[in-house]
Amino acid sequence: MKEKTIDYILRATWQAVARMYNEEASKYGATMSIGFALLSIDKENGISSTALGPQMGMEPTSLTRTLKSMEEKGLIVRKKNPVDGRGVIIHLTKLGKEKRELSKTTVLKFNDVIKQRVSQEKLDHFAEVAEIINGLISEKQIYNTEKGKEQETTSSIK
């Protein structure tokens, strides 16, 4: 059996998680993106639209679609930023706060089930590996094209 590449394992796992969350969210007329946005918006003070995108790791066009859908569903309202009138603060409505709690419960259940089946030591290693991968990517240490030379890799895909 061929060894799976690290990126394959990450991608396949994330796709399975996303599919699971989307299936669960669809029971409530939502999506995983909406659930994640609900959890990312401060339930008391809201969040500026410019801060929400980077916090969620979403591209502006995807975020705009998600926020429009959330507004249409009555989950959020946009208000002028009192500090900077050019900006917008996104606030949760009463319904948005209720759906936020539902999203929180869903995420916590996922975490609980995983924690019941995976030791804390393995979870710590998983988090450590993920941090290393994110660090290598953010520091551009994987595809360093400085001086036209790509960093050599020690393994090859078979």
Rank of each mutant, 00 (worst) to 15 (best):
K99C: 00
S40E: 01
Y21R: 09
A25N: 05
A37V: 01
Y8Q: 12
N81V: 05
P82S: 07
K80C: 00
V77Q: 10
R65A: 05
S26H: 07
N22T: 10
Y28Q: 09
S119M: 09
P82T: 10
I76V: 15
K27W: 09
S40H: 00
R65Y: 11
E131T: 11
G148H: 12
G74L: 04
Q141S: 12
P54F: 02
Q15V: 08
P54I: 03
T31W: 06
N134W: 03
K79I: 15
V88W: 12
T61I: 14
G57H: 01
R11L: 13
L39M: 04
L92F: 02
A127E: 14
S155H: 02
V17M: 14
I133L: 14
R11G: 02
K73F: 11
A18Y: 15
E44S: 06
T50I: 14
G148K: 07
I137D: 02
N134I: 05
H91E: 12
L75F: 15
W14V: 07
T13V: 08
R11N: 09
S33M: 12
E131Q: 13
G53H: 05
S48E: 15
K147M: 07
I76F: 04
G148T: 12
G148S: 11
E131P: 00
G85Y: 12
S49P: 00
K73I: 04
S103F: 00
H91M: 11
T106D: 01
I114K: 06
D7V: 01
G96Q: 06
I34S: 02
W14F: 10
D112R: 06
L136M: 14
K2S: 07
A25Q: 08
I90W: 01
N144A: 09
T61C: 04
S69C: 10
K147Y: 13
Q55L: 02
A130T: 08
G74H: 11
L67A: 11
I9Q: 10
G87Q: 15
H91S: 04
V113Q: 04
E24A: 05
L38P: 00
K27C: 10
L75W: 15
M1S: 11
A18C: 06
K109T: 11
T61S: 15
A12S: 14
S26M: 04
E128C: 13
T31E: 08
I89E: 01
N111E: 08
E131M: 12
S69I: 12
R65D: 04
L75H: 14
N22M: 04
K122D: 15
T154S: 12
R100T: 00
